[in-house]
Every structure is written in C-alpha cells, then in structure tokens.
Design a protein around this nucleic acid. Structure first.
Lengths: 356, 356
DNA sequence: ATTTTTGAAAAAAACGTTTTTCTGAATTTG
DNA sequence: CAAATTCAGAAAAACGTTTTTTTCAAAAAT
C-alpha cells in the first residue's frame, strides 16, 4: 500500500510560506494574523487536505475534549435515557462522551473514575452508587472532590445523587415529588397509605420518604410505622415487601412506592393477593420509567425530567471546566404527577413507547 | 495553589539512573531489560507516583485504545442493551468506548463516523441506518470500507446490519428466525397468516420476509400478496398497517411482524378491532425487546441475542485491528422462539424486568 | 531626533511518550 | 584469533501540536 507521508501543520506552513505558529494561530483564532497570511493558510490547508491531530494538540494543551460518563447501568431505561440527553448536550458543546457502567458496584465505580482520570478526560459526569452513610466512603468522596492528575483538577458533576456539598449536582426534587404523589392519593380519599421505600441509605430515598411523611402530616393523617417498609430496588423485592405489608393486616387503601421498579412488583403482589387496583388499593410509583405505562393496570407515577437532568448536568460540568473557582451549584428539578390506572380506574391505557 | 511539576518518564529515568528508553521498555515490556534495572525502574515509578500519559503515548504510537460506537438511538431498549454488552466486551480488552447517536439520520451517521475518524479511534462499531438500495449510499459505503486517516486504515465492524461484503459484520439469522416464527403459527393450526414487514429497503427486513415466504412454501400454504404489508418501524404505524390488513377483508388467523415495535401496535389494533388474541388472531414479533413481556397480552417473539451481538462485534473489530489483512468475516447468530400469550393463551404472564 | 512601545510574524521550546539509531562490551563465528 | 554477531543500554529522533520567546520594523512617546 502506498504510504504517503502524513501531512502536518508543518507542511501547511511550508506550503503557505509562513511559520508553524502562524498556522496554529490562524486555525485556532488565538492571535491576530493579517488577512493576507490568514488567506494563504486557508488555501494551503484546503489544498493539502490538512486535518488537525487532536492527540497532538491534546498533548500540548492538556485538553481531550472528552467527558466521561459513569452510570450504574447502560441498558436500564432510566440511565439510557439520561445517556441520550447527555450525548446530545455534550455534542452541542463539542465534547465526546466516553461511557462506563458500574453495575451498581462501588468498586467498579472507583475503578472507572480512576480510569477516566488517567485518560485525562476534561470532566466526569457521575451517577454514583455510593452509600453516603458508610464512613469508608468518606475517603472516596474526598478523592472525588480533589480528583486531579498532575495537579490538574478534574471536575465532577453528579447526576440524580447529591453526594457531597462540594460537588456540583443535579437531582430531582424528591421531597416535593413524593409529597405530590401522596397528596394525590389523599385527594382520592385514601386514608391508609403505606410507603414502600427504596434503600434508605440513598439520599434520594431519604428525601422521598420525607415527602411522604410531610404530606401525611399536612393532611392531619397519623403516621403509622407499620405501614412503612424498606426494600431494595428490584421489582421482585417490591413484590415481597408488598406481600409483607398486606399480611401485616393493617388497613390499607393506598401505597406510595419509592421507585417504579418496586411499584411494578407491588402491583403484581396486590393482584396476586386478589385485591383490585385501584379500587381496593391505589398505587403510585416514582420515576415514570418507560414500562410504567405498559403494564396492566398502567402505573401512576411521578415523572422525573430525565432529559433536563442530563442536559443540566452537562451544563454544570462544562461551566465548571471553564471556571473551576465558581461556587458549587446544586440544581433541583421538579417532577410531574402522571395519573394512570393504578390510581384512576377511568384513565385510558396509553402505551408510551418513546423508549423505542 | 501549589503547582508542582508534573512527573514524567524523564523523572523516573533520572531517579532510577537509567535512560528514558529503558523506562519505556520496562513499562511496556517491549524489550528485555536486566532484572536489576527493571527493579530500579519499578521502585522509582512507585516512589514518584508516576502515571503514564496516554495522550503522549498515543501521539507517538498512533493508538488511542478507544473504539467508537455509532447507534441509531441510545435510549432504545435494543441498542442500549447492545451498548451494555459492547461496553463489557471492550473493557475486557482494554478499550474505552465513545458513543454517538444518529437518531436514524444518515447525515448524522456520516458526521459521527467522520468525527471518530478525526478523533483517531482505533476502530468503529457501526449500526448503520443506511438504505443499501439507494445508489447515493454507494459512495458512503465505499468511504466506510476505505476509512483512514493519514493513510492509516480505521476498521469498522457492522452490527445487526450487513451493509457490505467488505465490512465485518454480525447479525441475527433473520431468515431462520422468521421461518421459525411462521412455522410456530402454522404448528398452532393457523392457515391465513399475514406478514407485516418493516421497511424492505433494510437488508434485515428483506431477509425476514424471505423467512416468512419460505415457511409458507415449505408447508404448502399459498402465499397471498393481500396478506403482506410494508410499514415503517413505529408502533403507531404497526397499528395502522394492521388496521389496513383487517379492513382488506381477507381471512386472517395469524400475523407475523417484522419487529416488536410494530407488533405491539398490531396487538393494539387487533384488540381495538374487537378480536381476541390469540384465539382469533395470533401475533408474533421479532427481537424480543424489553416491553414484549410487559404488554397484555404478552407478545410472543423471536429473541435476538443482544449480548452476543455486542460481544461478537467487539471481537470482530479487535481482531481486525490486530490483523487488517485477514479475510472478511460475517457472523450470523441464531434467534430463539419465545412463546407468550399472543400465540399461546395458556402462557402465564411473566414480566421480564431485566431492563431495570 | 532619540527612546519606548506596540505589533505581526518567525523561531524555538515544550508537551511526554515511543521508536530508531548508536555505542561499546560480550559473545559467537569462521 | 580476528571478524562478525548479539546484546543491554543510552542517546537521540520522532510524533504534531501549542505556547513562549525572540526578532525586527513601524508607530508612539519623550
């Protein structure tokens, strides 16, 4: 194969009869160059078909124009949607995105953050699976805050998890969201409302539970500990927890669930138990993830603004890259009540197939 | 902020009292180095906390250890699942993955392939949305085949689309898959089986239709053109097409659909039309995408091996990177019949929530 | 009218590696 | 035993940019 010499900025300079630095400045607009030379450079670039080498420029400038994205799961409907909006927003700002999937494994998360650091990405978007209550994680979070390579700071923005007052973050307004969900059930006349929580070591879960308690209090409904249960994240576990609640024998006519996954399991368990939804028990989840509209009965939920979550995160990160000294920012985005059949029997089943 | 000098291979060399090249060879294992020096190097590396700079090494070696992945949609359940397996496989081979989403837009696809070329990725995994029949695309495909930067070839492996006999590819065995699906309906005693095709300019769609025709022929069932219809990919359009079929008035007791999206729409339309599934009309899709198990009645389908599709593609690409001259490879992976309620009324509804 | 200041452009240094070439001793060969 | 080969290691040359420094002339200031 004919292997011609690769043409570099040097060749352009020679062809245009100017210096290398002049070519660089013309190409980057970093310094004023007379119209004549500037024109000559452009002509030569076109003539030679010159293509800048980002690796070389990255070496000198210390920028990779790449942001790393770390998510628990790529194929999860929620995170893939997030990835979608991150991709769009990043591209608009001329960054490419490099993805890593932690599988909810903190060890992997640490490894991937480290990999991105060594790769010298310009910034990292992190959906951490860290348990902020465990003391061991303190060190890790400290690492994140001070993440750097060769004394160059690498900014991090957190998505959907506010793990440190020193890291930029964007999250859903969990308290307000579950407050709305609970109020919704109350407005339907429900009095005996259970709460099925996702693991409470998650900041989000804590906030959501708070919303439930606040709504009951504000409505003068007594809180009954027997109606509160904590599970893990899975649909299966949602079903198990719901079964436990039902078997406890306390009166029940509604249940607010900390996320859609578990809510789907809860719906399944209630049906299995021979009760009617929503007549006997109304159910509402949180997230409004893709399958919510598909199951029967379709699941009411609090819709999390996935697209804005992603684009806001990118904005935060890029602002931080540009200005490392700016004050830390935390953005809370409002959720939205989506009423479907698990709280309104008359609601028509409309399959939301936007995940396709 | 104290900004200490960044420590480089040079510092390691000085500290270990060896030459730079020796350090490099020790670190990369590219040449035999005596145990003594090798040990000294390791000690110095550890002592100084030296961290190799992949940008610099990339500049000289011409490798980025990055593969680009171009998919039509990141949030689509099928592609996100693909992305998941690609990520896992790539990581295992020490490559990072950079993603681009084309939104089924060929112009974007071209732009992103170009971006990846300029970025000098080591290889590209492409799920093209090209219409192989249009003559204009010939040029584009030729570009893909000869993709290079500075005369360095950039290999491409295609996923789920065999767009050129000159590009490595991995696809599902579409013919066999739809053949199996159709035979399944026939085995249930169905005689008047319609075929709802995805756009036939897609290679996959053509192959799938072929499987339908073959199955009818092999079973001695006459092919009736009136029972064949071509749509686009969407659920909505699936419903529209199904409605048309129903209104044509020809006898119908089964329908094979070219993909799950349209199948879901078809199910919806049949229900709307007041017919019972599967009693009046049995339905089977293709892909076994996530929502298939969630809708009511749950959708029978041909399961596409998404994970193997991704990992095989990575394997193909990396082998190609290592050996650009090897003969072209096309891998066809078998699909698997998944029987659910749209073909078997007695099948129990089991929500597959693995997308979570 | 002489010294400063400015400005455009060139020259050179730097970025941190890998890879090629060079060196001199030790080993093998004829 | 002299010449050729191997070998470990050092030195130096690349890789293709950006950025700093230098140069020289023209404009501005004293």
């Amino acid at each position: 194969m004919k292997r011609t010499k690769t043409i570099s900025i040097k060749d352009v300079a020679a062809s245009a009869n100017v210096s290398i630095s002049t070519v660089s400045h013309v190409l980057n607009g970093t310094k004023h160059v007379s119209n004549e030379l500037r024109e000559r450079v452009f002509v030569s670039v076109k003539k030679l078909g010159y293509e800048v080498n980002p690796i070389a420029s990255g070496l000198k400038s210390g920028k990779t124009n790449t942001i790393g994205v770390v998510v628990p799961s790529i194929s999860n409907v929620f995170y893939s949607r997030l990835l979608h909006s991150i991709h769009a927003a990043a591209l608009k700002k001329n960054y490419s995105v490099c993805i890593y999937e932690t599988q909810q494994n903190l060890e992997y998360e640490m490894r991937y953050v480290e990999a991105l650091r060594l790769k010298r990405v310009d910034g990292i978007l992190l959906t951490s699976c860290v348990d902020t209550e465990r003391p061991e994680t303190k060190a890790y979070i400290k690492t994140l805050i001070g993440l750097n390579i060769n004394n160059k700071h690498i900014p991090i923005a957190c998505i959907d998890s506010d793990i440190s007052p020193n890291l930029d973050a964007v999250t859903t307004d969990n308290v307000a969201g579950v407050y709305t969900a609970t109020k919704h059930l109350i407005s339907l006349g429900r009095q005996y409302i259970a709460y099925l929580a996702a693991p409470l070591y998650f900041q989000n879960s804590k906030e959501r539970k708070k919303g439930y308690l606040m709504a009951l209090n504000d409505s003068g409904i007594p809180v009954c500990e027997e109606r509160i249960i904590e599970g893990d994240f899975s649909p299966d576990n949602g079903a198990v927890c719901m079964k436990k609640l039902l078997e406890r024998g306390c009166q029940l006519d509604g249940v607010v669930v900390g996320n859609d996954q578990m809510a789907v399991g809860a719906v399944w368990a209630i049906k299995k138990h021979g009760l009617k939804i929503p007549d006997d028990i109304a159910v509402i989840g949180f997230d409004d993830n893709y399958p919510a509209s598909l199951i029967t009965p379709s699941l009411s939920s609090i819709s999390v603004p996935k697209d804005r979550l992603g684009s806001t995160a990118v904005d935060l990160l890029i602002e931080r890259i540009r200005n490392p000294e700016a004050p830390r920012r935390l953005v809370r985005l409002p959720g939205k009540l989506i009423v479907r059949q698990t709280t309104d029997a008359n609601s028509e089943a409309v399959w939301d197939l936007s995940g396709w």
